[in-house]
Simulated assay, not measured.
Amino acid sequence: MNSISFHDTKYALGWARLQTPDLRSPKPVPHVAREHPSHLVLYHQGSMPGNVAAVNLIPETGGAIIVLTNSLALNDTTDWLGELYLDAYLGVRKRNDHVALAKETAARALEWYPRLIKELKSQQIPDT
């Protein structure tokens, strides 16, 4: 796993060992627990057709945040719900606007389908 912050980041057997802030931060993903003391988080994300899961374990407190969904979203909803709950659990004051982020990324994802249809039609060979 690429190091994405000054904190120690490791990955093995499906589990990521991360430090807040900046859990998973390629743009436009929000910075988790920004301007808040650092915490170790053990993270696992699972995905199968029709369901997605995200697990955040906080060893220091013995806490866990588990998000299970029964559908696939247009963005990273499961992770973001876990991060939103993690911010609340840790008592983070400066929280991200996950609703605005979800609207922005869902709109961007929906733009993909018309482009795909246009590309497929341009490559289509009639009567084959």
Rank of each mutant, 00 (worst) to 15 (best):
A73D: 11
P28V: 03
W80P: 00
V92L: 07
V67N: 06
L23I: 04
A33L: 05
G14V: 04
A16I: 02
L110T: 06
D76G: 03
R93Y: 07
R34E: 08
A53S: 13
T77F: 10
T9Y: 06
P59C: 04
I66A: 13
V55T: 12
L84T: 06
Q45P: 00
N75A: 12
E83L: 01
K27D: 11
T77N: 03
P21C: 02
A16P: 00
E60S: 10
L13Y: 14
W112C: 09
T69S: 15
S25L: 04
H31F: 04
N2F: 12
V67M: 04
A88C: 10
Y43N: 05
T105Y: 04
Q19L: 04
P28E: 04
L18P: 01
D22K: 06
P28K: 02
E60P: 01
N51D: 06
E104V: 02
S71M: 10
E111Q: 13
L23D: 03
L81I: 15
W15L: 07
A16F: 10
Y113G: 03
K118F: 15
E104Q: 11
Y43H: 10
P30C: 01
Q19E: 11
N96F: 01
Q45Y: 06
S3M: 13
L40I: 05
M48F: 05
G63A: 12
K121N: 15
Q19R: 10
P26W: 11
P114K: 07
H7F: 14
D8A: 10
P21I: 04
S71P: 01
Y43Q: 07
E60D: 12
L23F: 04
I58R: 00
G82V: 09
D22V: 02
H7N: 07
L57W: 12
Q124I: 12
D79A: 05
A88T: 11
K94H: 08
P37H: 02
I65L: 09
D127W: 14
L57M: 09
Y89M: 11
E104Y: 04
V99Y: 10
P114S: 11
Q124N: 13
L120Y: 15
E83G: 03
S122E: 15
N96Y: 03
M1C: 09
G91N: 08
T20R: 00
H39Q: 08
T9W: 08
I58S: 00
L74R: 05
Q123P: 03
K103W: 04
K94F: 08
D127K: 12
G50C: 05
Q45T: 06
S122A: 15
P126F: 11
H98N: 06
L101G: 00
H39P: 00
T78L: 01
L116E: 15
G63D: 12
N75W: 14
D76N: 10
S3L: 12
H39K: 01
D127M: 11
W80S: 02
V55N: 01
V55L: 14
V92A: 08
N70A: 02
D22P: 00
T128F: 13
E35P: 00
Q45V: 07
R24S: 03
V52F: 03
A109F: 15
D79S: 07
R24D: 09
N70V: 00
V29P: 00
P126I: 15
D127G: 10
L57I: 13
I4D: 12
H31C: 01
L81K: 06
A54G: 04
Y11L: 09
K10V: 02
A33D: 00
P26A: 04
S5T: 15
L18K: 05
G82E: 14
